[in-house]
Simulated scan of single mutants.
Amino acid sequence: MRLTSRKSDRVEPEVEEACGVRELAIIEAPSVLGLRPTGVEELPRALLGAGLVEGLGAVRGGRVEAPAYEAGRDPESGVLNPGGIARYSSALADTVGCALDRGLFPVVLGGDCSILLGNLLALRRRGRYGLLFLDGHSDFYQPSAEPAGEVASMELALATGRGPRVLADLEGLGPLVRDEDVVALGFRDAGESEEAGMQALPPQLGAVDLDGVRALGAAAAARGAVGRLGEYWVHLDVDVLDDAVMPAVDYRLPGGLSWAELESVLRTALGDERAVGFDVTIFNPRLDPDGSIAARLVDCLRRGLSARTGRG
């Protein structure tokens, strides 16, 4: 089983340094170890091909290839690919950490949501950081309640130190993030997760569901969320978007944020100087045969990232 990371190379030949602005480092993390190889692994190619980094000022931060997918559920941990995810998380953390060491702002293109563990591990090696968690699902399942043992449904629980030790205590540094340093924003799966028997979100963890975002307004909800945090990572599962505009995901759920609402949240969160990195997960290009959804997603992401770079 081999993990590889390609060396950095520049996307644009000239990048200007600006006070308080960090150059973007694009890192490809096409792992589906926490889900299934259904097409999510093609996310980096699709978004880069649709022009994600054009004009933003960016360097290539590398690509981390995942080990072979094993479909059998591990009897000890109760999840799929626990060893592979643990090793992949360490390799991804090395690559993200390299970008951070160079003073860059990592933009990690998944893959499924299990890549969050590697991103947070890179930060945990450095100290205490927060997490803004943008997802249509709260992803706080324990293995006994997750029907297929998919880590992409439990990464927030694992990141906060709950679950099998092989993933909840990566490198002996778990939890990767403290409950009080997390805000989950925009989820809408309360009924579904309760029916499945998912463990409850802890009271110390900030939680603003879709109705809460709508009550406050997207920008105000995002300002309130990041106001709770110190330096923080931003995680985006694109199924936080309304299913009517983002059907190219494997687990669909009615409702969700509009494009304008997500852009507002991203501009607020990524434009704050305390943001240290960003990942995008779960978009499945095979469910977008004409590329129109990828193009619209790239437009939204570019607008959000432009608040960080002052470009685009």
Rank of each mutant, 00 (worst) to 15 (best):
E65V: 13
Y69F: 15
S153N: 14
G255S: 05
F283Q: 05
E41Y: 04
G84S: 13
A168K: 12
E231S: 15
V234P: 03
V166Y: 05
N284P: 00
K7F: 06
S193P: 01
P147A: 10
L100P: 03
D139V: 08
R22Y: 05
V208Q: 06
A190Y: 09
A220M: 02
L170V: 05
A225W: 04
P202T: 08
G310D: 10
L262T: 00
L257F: 09
D94M: 14
R178A: 14
G291T: 12
N284I: 03
M154D: 04
G62D: 11
G118K: 08
L158K: 08
C300K: 02
G304T: 03
R296T: 14
R311C: 07
C19R: 13
L33D: 13
I115F: 02
F133L: 00
A93F: 06
R165W: 04
A196K: 12
C98A: 15
L116D: 02
E42D: 15
C113H: 15
A157S: 12
T95D: 00
G39I: 07
G256N: 11
E41R: 11
I293D: 00
L301S: 11
W233I: 08
R125D: 04
P106L: 02
V298H: 10
R2S: 11
G217L: 07
E195I: 13
A269Y: 08
L301D: 05
P13D: 09
V166P: 07
L253F: 08
V245D: 02
I27F: 01
L257P: 02
V40G: 02
L253T: 00
G103Q: 10
T268H: 03
G34Q: 08
G39Q: 06
L120P: 07
E23I: 10
L236K: 09
L48W: 12
V64E: 01
Y251L: 15
V79M: 10
L120K: 03
I115P: 04
A68Q: 13
P143G: 07
R308K: 12
D237K: 02
V96W: 11
V53G: 00
L134V: 11
A221M: 14
V79L: 14
F133V: 01
T160N: 03
A248V: 13
L297V: 10
L301K: 04
A218C: 08
P30F: 06
E180Y: 02
A46V: 01
V208E: 08
T281C: 14
A58R: 01
L109D: 06
G97M: 11
P289I: 12
R214V: 13
R311L: 07
M198W: 10
L117Q: 06
S5W: 00
A200G: 12
V234M: 09
D135G: 08
V265L: 12
E28F: 00
L297M: 10
V40W: 01
G186N: 11
G163R: 06
I85N: 06
N119T: 10
V59R: 15
A29Y: 01
L297R: 01
V208I: 15
G224P: 02
R178C: 04
G206I: 09
S77H: 07
D74T: 13
A68H: 09
M246T: 00
V298F: 09
A190N: 12
S31F: 03
R125M: 11
I282S: 07
D250Y: 01
Y88M: 05
V79E: 05
D288H: 11
L301W: 01
E192Y: 14
D237S: 13
D211F: 09
V276K: 01
S90R: 14
A225M: 07
P254V: 12
G39R: 01
D209N: 10
P30D: 09
E273R: 15
